[in-house]
Design a protein around this nucleic acid. Sequence first.
DNA 1: TTCCATACCTTGACATCCTAGGCAACCTCC
DNA 2: GGAGGTTGCCTAGGATGTCAAGGTATGGAA
Lengths: 114, 114
Amino acid sequence: MAKQKTDQKADLLQGTLDMLILKAVSLGPLHGYGIIQRIRQISGEMLEVEQGSLYPALYRIEQRGWVSSQWEKGETGRRVKLYTLTKVGRAQLEVEEASWDRLALAIAKVRQAT
Amino acid sequence: MAKQKTDQKADLLQGTLDMLILKAVSLGPLHGYGIIQRIRQISGEMLEVEQGSLYPALYRIEQRGWVSSQWEKGETGRRVKLYTLTKVGRAQLEVEEASWDRLALAIAKVRQAT
DNA sequence: TTCCATACCTTGACATCCTAGGCAACCTCC
DNA sequence: GGAGGTTGCCTAGGATGTCAAGGTATGGAA
């Protein structure tokens, strides 16, 4: 299906996946497969989340109460598991974004060092 | 001793440690304990690498040929294990920096999504 | 002499991610 | 009507990397 991905295996860093998922779901309820597509889309085709990474992560995230899920009939008539961001999840997203900002800033400083 | 660390568990993301170490050593040969200090310093006290993370990482990095080591007499008269960046290591540093840039760019895009 | 900082290292637990599968429903095209 | 592709869910197993916690030793300061 033409994955290609600019030949560079950009692989996510451990810990960033949760933030990406929360962000994707924050744009509106979504099912698992759709999350992968949305992340790919909003990252400009740069990030490709594997199913084997996503589903365990979703389970984990739901356990922590950051998202809630319910089975629904999708637009195509098929049953899909819709995930919705909870209030706690929205707060967590902000925490993770702040944490990322701090790290990115720190790394930037290190990069400048001579 | 005053560690403090702004109470925020800034914890590194898996995968960034190698880059930090390579960068630290790229500024001049250094021993393990000194690497921790240099990273703390050039990150503006934002990054605190644990010894339990550093030494395994150093071993790993040396096995891959990115640094070489030799025992020397430190300034204080004590024996220290000095690590030096190799040519391969310098190339690897560039690879990791480029990889970080890609990821940071992708994350930034995701952050902007509405 | 007691304590702290420096300096090395290991062990074991833990979380997260990826590879590689499996299952099923739906669609299109031949 | 059958084949194959896409959507959609999931799991098992292994690899990796990090951390918490400990151990050892030297040297200087109090």
